Simulated scan of single mutants.
Amino acid sequence: MKTRLIGAILAVVLAVIGTVVLTGYVRTADARASAGAEMVSVYVVKEAIPAGTKAEDAVANFEVKEIPALAAVKGRVTKLAQLDGTVSDVALVPGEQLLRNRWVAPEDRDNSDVALPDGMQELSIALPVEHVVGGSVKAGDTVGIVVSATLKMPPDDKEIQFTEQIFHKVLVLDVQKGSTTQAKEAAAAADDATYDTIMVTLARPTDDVQKIVWGQEFGSVWLTLEPEEADESGSRAIDGGKVFTL
């Protein structure tokens, strides 16, 4: 009985010693890892900030952190003065770095949400920046929707690639941008903002929603900037035989 008790005590002591040694090793490893890394100061969000918040009202919700330079995001805010007179364009979450392209002039934010027409639905799709006219599409614009996909044609299920502009002058309700690739939109470029994905919210009736989702799921979707005066004629299904003269 005494032998078992002594063995149990020894096991607990060894476990405690092992934990202390492991913790010390991890801390030492972290110190070694950061010792040679260049560190920079960044602003991060402490608590959630709703979209439309004035920068002056959100200042108390920012804090400065030291992080390795490799982890610092391009286009981050380096001086709070860069946000003077702006409001948050999207909701910001705790821990994210403060990015200049997430803050806009109040008048731009006021125009960023467009009312949904009666009888239509809202549909959001995420597209690469090059599929959205280089990022120049904004809320209130009308766009054309082009779908490319591979279809199996009867009777032998031969695969043929088709492209067609399936809708014209579709109303854009909202646009939100992600991060990492240089923007072409003039205002964003002026702020040195970067992004690679754009979430576009469109207004369409039920049948059109289904077709857009099909294109996004089984092919690829491209948007054109198509103002009211744009010519809609000439839209048809295109395959390689129509593109190239063989």
Rank of each mutant, 00 (worst) to 15 (best):
A193D: 02
A8F: 13
F218A: 09
K74S: 03
T150A: 11
R76H: 12
L171S: 07
V93H: 03
S233W: 06
K169G: 08
L98I: 08
T194Q: 05
V42G: 07
T3K: 11
T3R: 07
T180E: 08
K65T: 11
G240W: 13
A193K: 01
V170Y: 11
V172F: 10
V77M: 09
A115E: 08
G215K: 13
P155G: 09
E122S: 14
R236Y: 12
P227F: 08
V20L: 06
M120L: 02
T224V: 07
A115K: 08
D191M: 10
A51M: 04
A187V: 11
A72S: 13
A33R: 11
L98C: 09
K79V: 09
A189D: 02
F244Y: 15
I160S: 08
S136A: 13
Y195R: 06
S233D: 11
F218I: 11
G18D: 03
E228W: 00
S112R: 04
S220Y: 10
V12W: 03
A37P: 00
D30L: 13
A203T: 00
E63W: 00
T78P: 02
V12S: 13
V20T: 04
L246I: 13
T53G: 08
G241W: 10
R102P: 00
E96L: 03
V209E: 03
E38L: 09
N61S: 10
Q97T: 04
S124E: 10
A188C: 01
D84Y: 00
R204M: 15
A11Q: 01
A33D: 09
A230I: 02
A58R: 01
T150H: 07
K46E: 04
G52T: 04
F244N: 14
R109G: 01
T206A: 09
G36H: 09
P154N: 13
L123D: 05
D84N: 15
V172L: 13
T201M: 05
F167S: 11
K79N: 14
V42N: 09
A188G: 02
A35E: 13
V243D: 15
N111Y: 00
Y25K: 10
R204N: 07
T19S: 08
E217P: 01
E159D: 06
L116H: 01
F167N: 14
E66S: 14
Y43V: 07
V172Q: 13
D231R: 09
A81W: 00
V40G: 04
M153V: 11
V21G: 00
K169Q: 13
S136C: 10
T206F: 05
T181N: 06
S112N: 02
S136W: 10
K138P: 12
L14F: 08
G75E: 02
V147D: 10
E229F: 07
A72W: 06
V129K: 04
V73G: 03
D110R: 12
L225R: 01
A230C: 03
G215Y: 02
V172H: 11
G95R: 05
K152E: 15
D207G: 02
P50M: 07
Y25C: 04
V137N: 15
P106G: 00
I125V: 15
